[in-house]
Design a protein around this nucleic acid. Structure first.
Lengths: 134, 134
DNA sequence: TTTCGATATGTGATGTTATTACATTAGTCA
DNA sequence: TGACTAATGTAATAACATCACATATCGAAA
């Protein structure tokens, strides 16, 4: 579980599909892209995605049921903070950022309410600078 | 579109189902609960849910594909801010809160990146005080 | 009142996303 | 080897959501 994770064949195929995409992909889109590599069933994709999520190499975008390669693969700068995603509803581009103030405020709320958080998602839907200018 | 919204029959049925539940419900759970009231198809539920979301009377929890009645029905105190949800993965209870600092930080990011946000979701998964103590 | 348009509803079929269950294969290590 | 764990293959099914088309309801304009 170091920063350079040893991936199995299926995990590599799925990760590469996400890494070369310029935006999020659904599990079934990935499946279709990998049929030429021998993929035949959704579970082959979902199992690889689960592992890649574990390893922190990809993210799941809950609000659009899709997955993206992590855009900060070589640094664990914000590994302790929550990651926020800005998702353009027109072009599909996703920007990833983390903010210590937001992370701190959420933690304050959970601490003072006795809530043990395991995972937090922040997803901003809207139009990116390019699409919003049109 | 005032604070007391005039609801149609189906909208009332769906809203009441959510209001009397002590936690989030999936669309299909609502459908099953309303079969006795003549509901037969998912679309009857989804159409009502869409309207109730428009009216701000309910929220959609993206991370668990479920819906909850808004817990601040009579005040628009935080109507301009983002709402965060803390969802207990054991008992299903959902707590709703808003935080001006978080709202402000998100707006700072979107402003400085030219992103026009339309909807933002913040969902904290974990264990509530009761379940976490066990 | 009649006609029109907008909104709401009913229903079946279909599309999309995710998991269950079970069998098999491959690698690790005592 | 034997036993254990992780990964894989496959079919079936479950869970979530929308499309397409027909019908109904209601208010405003002619």
């Amino acid at each position: 579980m170091t920063s350079t994770q040893e991936l199995t064949k299926n995990q590599s195929l799925v990760f590469n599909a996400l890494a070369r995409a310029d935006g999020p992909l659904s599990a079934y889109t990935i499946l279709d892209q990998l049929r030429g590599d021998g993929f035949r069933a959704p579970l082959q994709v979902y199992r690889a995605l689960d592992k890649l999520l574990d390893y922190g190499m990809i993210h799941r975008l809950e609000s659009i049921n899709a997955f993206v390669a992590c855009s900060h693969p070589h640094s664990h700068n914000h590994s302790h903070g929550m990651i926020a995603f800005a998702i353009c509803e027109k072009c599909g581009q996703v920007s990833e950022f983390s903010d210590d103030v937001i992370t701190g405020r959420v933690r304050e709320w959970t601490n003072s309410n006795g809530f043990k958080q395991s995972k937090t998602t922040i997803e901003i839907r809207g139009l990116c600078a390019t699409c919003g200018a049109a």
